[in-house]
Design a binder for these strands. Sequence first.
RNA 1: AGAGAGGUGGCAGAGUGGUCUAAUGCGGCGGUCUUGAAAACCGUUGACUGUUACAGGUCCGGGGGUUCGAAUCCCUCCCUCUCUACCA
Length: 424
Amino acid sequence: MLRIEQLRDQTDIVLAGLQKRHFTQAETLIHKALELDKKRREAQAALDTTNSDMNQRAKVIGTLMKEGKKEEAETARTETAALKTKTKDLEEALKNAEQELFDVLVLLPNVPHESVRAGKSADDNEVVYEVPTLPTLPDSAVPHWDLIQRLDIIDFELGNKITGAGFPVYKGKGAKIQRALINFFLEEAENAGYTEIMPPLMINRDSGFGTGQLPDKDGQMYHAVADDLFLIPTAEVPITNLYRDVILDEKDFPVKNAGYTPCFRREAGSWGAHVRGLNRLHQFDKVEIVQIQHPEKSYQTLEEMRHHVEGLLKKLELPYRILRLCGGDMGFTSALTYDLEVYSAAQKRWLEVSSVSNFEAFQANRLKLRYRDASKKNVLAHTLNGSALALPRILASLLENNQQPDGHIRIPAVLQKYTGFDLI
RNA sequence: AGAGAGGUGGCAGAGUGGUCUAAUGCGGCGGUCUUGAAAACCGUUGACUGUUACAGGUCCGGGGGUUCGAAUCCCUCCCUCUCUACCA
């Protein structure tokens, strides 16, 4: 959520930023927010004055009672009672004004970083890096959905039977390579200074609000109605919310946490031709890295995180490219996002395997995540996160790129100590 | 799940209708003393809102209510602890 101060003090910058997203309601909503803010402050001022009056009167009555001046106290009491309705009205007005302002503020997405270019869709994303050569496969090569069936390592039909579409069952070496990837990713994160977190897989509404899934993206999460809890769509949610309502010390920076969790996504309405096999699932595994950083250092940290993810892809020997998302393709809460994609040689497509973002103070404002600066002021911190990495598409690319003429799959050297085998 | 107890500042903990503007202790910060440190002593120490700055206002788990006045009384929800039951 953007801060109202930001809208007041930097109206033009905010507006220009939101227009890079092709966020058409920007001007209307900013204007409305400023108006409601004025209304809110007026209501607050009126209520404060009345409250102050009431407090004084109550104090006077207390003193009169103590001194035994009963009649005077009684008179004052009746007078004051009349003011109560006024207070009630003012309270109501303030509450409404606050709610109206909040309702507008939550509609505004984050302001993109200056390096983000305007754009409508994924077609306008910038390719920051791409491996010089793409692999070519033998004529016998097939997509991963054929490979997993042939090798009997992932079974969609079984998943269908016990749950439904998009919930695959990993078997034998298929299960083991998942575990190997998770261990590899976690160990790399640990070596990079991240503390491993094993968070709850369900979150409450406050947490959903903190990272931006709620109020209006709840349709993307599985909802346990009886307890009003949601299955996490990413470890970002619980791990970032660890710091909700926290005031850090400047020396705590950077806060670095990483965690493996399954992720659950309803993916309502996003099924189509390109989502076969492992390309899109309702449940998948992911290791996430999360950092909380000083505002002046967050972009440096974003680069560091991108390099970390890049390092993983290099070690796995996968062909990849890096995109800087344009305004229109960026997530609601992000100020700058890099997508990392691996090449799926049999599908001849790029698959997104990681998204690394700086949210600046957008999440922190919702989370009330702050730090005490040198002058003892409380300032919003910056939050960042990245997938490091999401498993299914890594596996898809790995299977397709590493398939041998004899039909077996070569396991990359770095993974072998985790799998215990070098061939599937 | 049932019964009981409880939720107060960074922490511990007092306060059961009127200077609560929340005692006290610990911790933190600043200072005196000291070659330096410790101890001792003195001072200081929350968040939000608001103002040019003051002032003012809000916050004692969340929400609602009673009252001129609520940390304190009432309703409701949440959470924690103890015991019982159940369970990996």
